[in-house]
Design a binder for these strands. Structure first.
Lengths: 350, 350
DNA sequence: TTGTAGGCGTTATCAT
DNA sequence: ATGATAACGCCTACAA
């Protein structure tokens, strides 16, 4: 073995510790401030000095520490936080994409974290993001009390709620026209002669579901149709339960002639159940999904543009960050029926 | 109007600037260090002092600045970076989910950025993440030269390549068994008697596509079947082109009896085209997708577990972060055939 | 139990 | 054109 005097373990003579501006300054025989000038492309640096500094930077593998940089007052972390239920869900990943697209244009980065629909985790994640000094926050809330954010709002951090409004807190919000979408779905089915329309929904306490159910209920009532309790199934976010509900519904002595599913995941479960039993009621689902047009009976849905939610949220957020005067935003994004076949099946064929 | 002496614009007397530990210390009449102790739950603080500090914290809305905290040597940013092509693509969002799941267990956060398959942007994003001192990096590379990361590796930042290996760089890599998956697909079709098997692929320079095509080519050759150039379509990542290729293929005087699509997106485009024309060759696609089992002819695919790629990547990454001795990782994740119907159609029905 | 001094890596300010 | 010095908000080390 050779003399283990030096702690250098690389074949070249480069140290394996992360270099700082001071290291670069030493290597280039200039002051730290000159390195800072070069790194930040400030003017008034001699060309030869600049060149020398650049060489030292390349040789040492120096990279400006943006964390230290952001510590200086006025400097920003250029980071925004997003809290969602599950990034693997296409609805949320589209929102994230829309957000990130705008963020990239502003040279901001996006920290994404998954609450898994757990109020406690939501709050922990929000706090963790704020401790990291994200400059703005987008939240798809899982909890039922967001007053814990009021101080943060007062301190100037823009917080935008997506898909569901905040509770006990006033801040910018972007939601879908859930109720209107459901109304359109039910009116569509009514216009094809359906009178016994079942609904399969998830947790009725979740805002979106509650609104969609309200749209269902209101519309039937408005058309003078009494809701048959036997046709209402709740807490079917789980695919198993949605399928079971579908089977029970279709086995009723007087089954529904149409089914309305209040979400993507429920729709797919219901369609699977209908696929297995041989019955074919009319069907409309809330949320569009891939290949809906390719199924044996193409699926009519209430669609919307999730990526646009993210984009709009980002626009509001960056407007706030740039201190643009802006009233409280309460945006409602449109929903619309996409007619494909399943929603136009006539009644009386079950 | 009352005297506008104070700059306070809130009804209460709370300042609207973000408080620091010093502010809390002043409010509680203790030293900064005592506040630090309370904030970090250190022992040896008098209960009454602790209480007073907690009150000041609550009143001022103090939140520890983790950016400043991480500046102290030895402290970490507890952040990892992920560079992918597009988070809205379910394959990548599943990877992200797997990663984030493990990261959350370690109390790390995940910064996600989209390269949009642009090598330049990939590099910019990687650099931006490193400037933010992410402690580790996961990259689905778009570029063709990753030597720019060698210095960073030497400095100790774990970098893991996902789905595609790095070029001109040695580092941990997790890819799918692309070639083996393609081989299984082709052997499956061969076992059902197919001899004219077309392939529709994307950019042949992209690693995954190249491997999958190689698997196709090798397997045919190994079985003594000469590849018919007329049955090979490349650069069909665009849905339009994939559909066009399918139509041209099926209009050949001697059309293929089976089609192999090398990706998710291509599969869906091909199936759409086949849906329109009335022909029904056997079909196997690489990548599974939602509702593949619900299409009129359920779709046989080469499947894998994207979330597991993310999980495994995170495990390797955190092992490296904890300085666990670990040889260079070159993981190959398994792929397997999911038999559903479309891949078992016999030849001679076109 | 509590406090003081110094430094993390950068930028702002002011001097030379 | 270049440099010295003082922050930024926090934690470590040590002292009282």
């Amino acid at each position: 073995m050779s003399t283990p005097v030096s702690s250098i373990d690389e074949p070249d003579d480069l140290p394996s510790v992360r270099p700082t501006m001071q290291d670069v300054a030493n290597a280039a025989s200039v002051s730290l401030k000159t390195v800072s000038r070069v790194v930040n492309n400030e003017p008034r640096v001699d060309e030869r000095t600049r060149e020398r500094v650049h060489q030292a930077i390349a040789q040492l593998g120096f990279r400006r520490n943006d964390i230290a940089r952001s510590l200086r007052q006025g400097q920003t972390s250029s980071t925004i936080g997003l809290v969602i239920e599950d990034i693997a869900n296409p609805f949320y990943s589209s929102i994230a994409r829309g957000l990130e697209k705008v963020a990239q244009a502003y040279n901001y980065m996006l920290i994404i974290s998954n609450s898994e629909e757990n109020p406690l985790r939501e709050r922990e994640l929000v706090n963790a993001l704020l401790r990291r000094r994200v400059e703005g926050l987008c939240v798809v809330p899982a909890g039922y009390d967001h007053s814990y954010l009021s101080t943060e709002l007062r301190l100037g951090t823009p917080v935008i709620f997506l898909d569901r409004p905040p509770i006990h807190l006033q801040t910018d919000t972007i939601v879908l026209d859930n109720r209107g979408g459901a109304r359109k779905a039910i009116e569509h089915l009514l216009s094809y002669g359906h009178r016994r329309i079942a609904v399969i929904q998830g947790d009725p306490r979740v805002y979106t579901g509650a609104e969609r159910f309200a749209g269902y209920y209101e519309t039937l009532t408005a058309h003078g149709i009494a809701c048959d309790e036997a046709l209402i199934y709740s807490n079917c976010d789980d695919a198993q339960r949605a399928q079971q509900a579908t089977r029970v519904l279709m086995a009723l002595p007087h089954p529904p002639t149409a089914i309305f599913a209040t979400s993507n995941r429920i729709s797919i479960a219901v369609l699977r159940a209908l696929h297995d039993c041989a019955c074919q009621p009319a069907f409309v689902g809330f949320d569009d999904f891939d290949l809906a047009d390719m199924l044996p009976v193409p699926v009519t849905v209430v669609a919307h543009d999730p990526m646009d939610i993210g984009r709009k949220a980002a626009e509001v957020l960056f407007a706030r960050l740039s201190r643009t005067e802006l009233p409280l935003q309460q945006l409602v994004m449109p929903t619309y029926i996409v007619v494909r076949g399943s929603g136009e099946l006539p009644p009386g064929r079950v």
